[in-house]
């Protein structure tokens, strides 16, 4: 069935707080929380999803902003829209997330699509996901009578999935106060789905580089060996000095190849592509990773 009156005689609840929302989830099995609905309603309209009930999260204002914790962590509401994350105050805090939000789609989608929705949908090309993976963000899952904290990457991979009755409420992101870059390749100038994306953050306090590649696999991939290797190639002490060369250009290129080799297997990213398609994707990832690190260290 392609179409249908999917919402005829169906329940829609509009809780005003997280407590009300988890209560509604607990008492209505099969209810689906909905925020911006940019992915969810497409699935409903196409007949792929027929939720028994919808819980609209739009009235929960507490989830639409962020707060600080311990001086080093930002706690982002799941209801933060892409448009909000693109604003200068947010971009100054977590630049890579702002970059990802800015390129996530046309303004109509960015105005309503949320951070929590991007995680819950877990689309391979979800733009904020590689950034959250690189930042090693964690998610707060609320349920009636309690909360738990799960790394976002565990949610995405299904290692520790969202359980029935749980609502994604907050995302914890470390504030690194250092350059961060998100780059995506789409093949066009207008908004589009990424064919590959790379998020890269510097962590000068720990002298680390963290990187994640999006859209080439069902979940963002972390090239951990490449990260460790390249962190050792960077002249951390020269940071901030006028005209300092932080990394050998050859190391930049090698980093790109290293990342691509780690994230795009031979013989196709999705298992079915021809060898040349995989080679092209590798090349694209290598270019993105090289440029991302180059921009971060500029």
């Amino acid at each position: 069935m392609e179409h249908g009156g999917n919402l005829v005689n169906r329940t829609i609840m509009l809780p005003a707080s997280v407590d009300e929302a988890v209560e509604a989830l607990a008492v209505t099995p099969g209810a689906v929380p909905v925020a911006g609905a940019t992915d969810l309603m497409e699935a409903v309209n196409a007949g792929r999803l027929r939720p028994a009930a919808l819980i609209g999260l739009g009235r929960i204002t507490e989830l639409r902003g962020w707060r600080y914790e311990d001086g080093g962590t930002a706690v982002l509401g799941a209801g933060l829209t892409h448009a909000r994350m693109d604003r200068p105050d947010f971009a100054a805090l977590i630049p890579a997330l702002a970059d990802a939000a800015r390129t996530a789609g046309p303004p109509q989608v960015r105005n309503v699509g949320t951070l929590g929705g991007n995680i819950a949908t877990a689309a391979p090309a979800g733009d904020t996901l590689p950034v959250l993976a690189a930042l090693e963000a964690t998610a707060t899952l609320a349920r009636a009578g309690g909360v738990r904290e799960v790394p976002v990457s565990h949610l995405l991979t299904g290692l520790d999935p969202l359980r029935p009755g749980e609502l994604l409420t907050w995302v914890r992101v470390p504030l690194l106060h250092a350059p961060q870059v998100f780059l995506k390749s789409t093949g066009r100038s207008g908004p589009a789905r990424a064919t590959a994306s790379v998020a890269l953050v510097l962590d000068p306090a720990r002298r680390g580089v963290r990187c994640a590649v999006g859209a080439v696999a069902p979940v963002p991939l972390r090239p951990l060996e490449a990260e460790n290797w390249v962190a050792g190639c960077i002249d951390w002490d020269a940071r901030g000095a006028e005209g300092a060369v932080l990394i050998d250009p050859a190391a930049l290129a090698a980093f790109g190849e290293y990342v691509a080799g780690a994230c795009v297997p031979e013989g196709g990213a999705h298992g079915e592509g021809s060898g040349s398609a995989a080679a092209r994707l590798r090349r694209t990832v290598a270019v993105l990773a090289r440029r991302a690190l180059g921009r971060a260290l500029k």
Binding site: T103, K184, S185, R188, S189
Partner: peptide, 13 residues
């Protein structure tokens, strides 16, 4: 640049 605003475009390439 090709790739659009906020894209991965690099003037050198």
């Amino acid at each position: 640049l090709p790739g659009g605003p906020g894209g991965a475009g690099d003037p050198a390439a």
